[in-house]
């Protein structure tokens, strides 16, 4: 268990005064993940909300070394940084133990940066990649990504007479990363700080590439109140819309099982404006619920597998 009192004493590696929206899940993600290690960290950031809001020149919110290169290449960039570290350490020019972390949104990770991430994971560089998943291109004004859930309305899936909201389910990036056979893959959420920081700590201590997909509510994109980010993220977990689990060396482990208390997905959908057009559409709700139930059952089966 993470000690909240101890955590509160830690100096944040990202300063206040950045320009993220109030209630933004991405800012919370960035701060909490970096709490997962006592070692110095170096950060690579894909273009996206965190990058544009924390480094408006000549200001920076980063108290740790930080690099932004472009949208699709945070993983390739951090692999260069890690390579430099490895060789300079081998040559005795650097002695300190340093941890490396890359942050990318779902656009920069599920979509445009997938190749870069896949390549870096396969090459085995020692870094942690965190996808702060707000389920759409929020930085560019809320367009759909391959992480956007079925039914959600976005600027590119607007509500029209013939077509309403996204027609496809999101792709399962976490499992795609599991298929890379890297030592550690996990899903977490800002609503569960214990789970998030424990997973971060574990990941930082494992050698090799690690991937964590963390749910990151966007108040503007999801149509939720500024003080409801954690509540909505919690509902995502409690409905099993966003299950918390980890896959260590190929072995699945569910981190949170609501059991009989598993809530219907409607509880999660009804508090968000992006789903308001389907909330009374029984067929759509049924389709979403069935998808969640199947995925949850599949996950439970995977946990039982003795690989």
């Amino acid at each position: 268990m993470v000690n909240l009192k101890e955590l509160a004493k830690q100096e944040s590696k990202i300063s206040s005064g950045h320009r993220m929206c109030p209630g933004c899940g991405a800012a919370i993600n960035a701060r909490m993940f970096m709490m997962g290690t006592k070692h110095p960290v170096v950060v690579a950031n894909a273009t996206g909300c965190i990058e544009v809001s924390t480094t408006v020149y000549p200001y920076t919110s980063w108290k740790v070394p930080w690099i932004h290169n472009a949208f699709e290449n945070a993983a390739a960039t951090i692999s260069g940084v890690v390579s430099a570290y490895d060789v300079l350490k081998r040559k005795g020019k650097i002695k300190k133990e340093i941890k490396f972390i890359a942050f990318g949104g779902d656009g920069g990770t599920y979509d445009i940066g997938l190749q870069s991430l896949s390549g870096a994971a396969e090459r085995g560089h020692n870094f942690l990649y965190v996808c702060y998943n707000n389920e759409a291109y929020m930085n560019t004004g809320m367009q759909r990504s391959s992480a956007t859930p079925y039914g959600a309305s976005t600027k590119t899936d607007p509500l029209g007479n013939k077509r309403q909201g996204k027609q496809e389910f999101s792709k399962d990036l976490t499992k795609i990363m599991v298929a890379h056979n890297i030592p550690y893959v996990a899903q977490t959420s800002i609503s569960h700080y214990n789970d998030l920081i424990e997973k971060a700590t574990k990941a930082f201590e494992i050698k090799g590439p690690k991937f964590i997909n963390s749910l990151s509510p966007c108040t503007a994109g999801w149509g939720i109140k500024e003080n409801d980010s954690l509540k909505v993220a919690r509902l995502a977990v409690e409905t099993c819309f966003w299950p918390l689990y980890e896959v260590e060396n190929g072995k699945y482990k569910i981190s949170y099982d609501p059991g009989d208390k598993k809530k219907p997905v409607k509880e999660f959908l009804k508090v968000q404006k992006r789903f308001s057009h389907i909330i009374n559409d029984k067929k759509a709700i049924k389709k979403i619920q069935e998808n969640i139930d199947k995925n949850w059952q599949d996950l439970k089966k995977l946990e039982k597998c003795d690989f």
């Binding site: 260069g80 390579s83 430099a84 570290y85």
Partner: peptide, 28 residues
Amino acid sequence: VDTDLIRVESEHSAMSACVGASAAGARV
């Protein structure tokens, strides 16, 4: 040579890794 050779998955990643490594103080 003592070089860390990164056999990347594209030229886009080649230059991206070069940028990361150079910013980290390596001769690239």
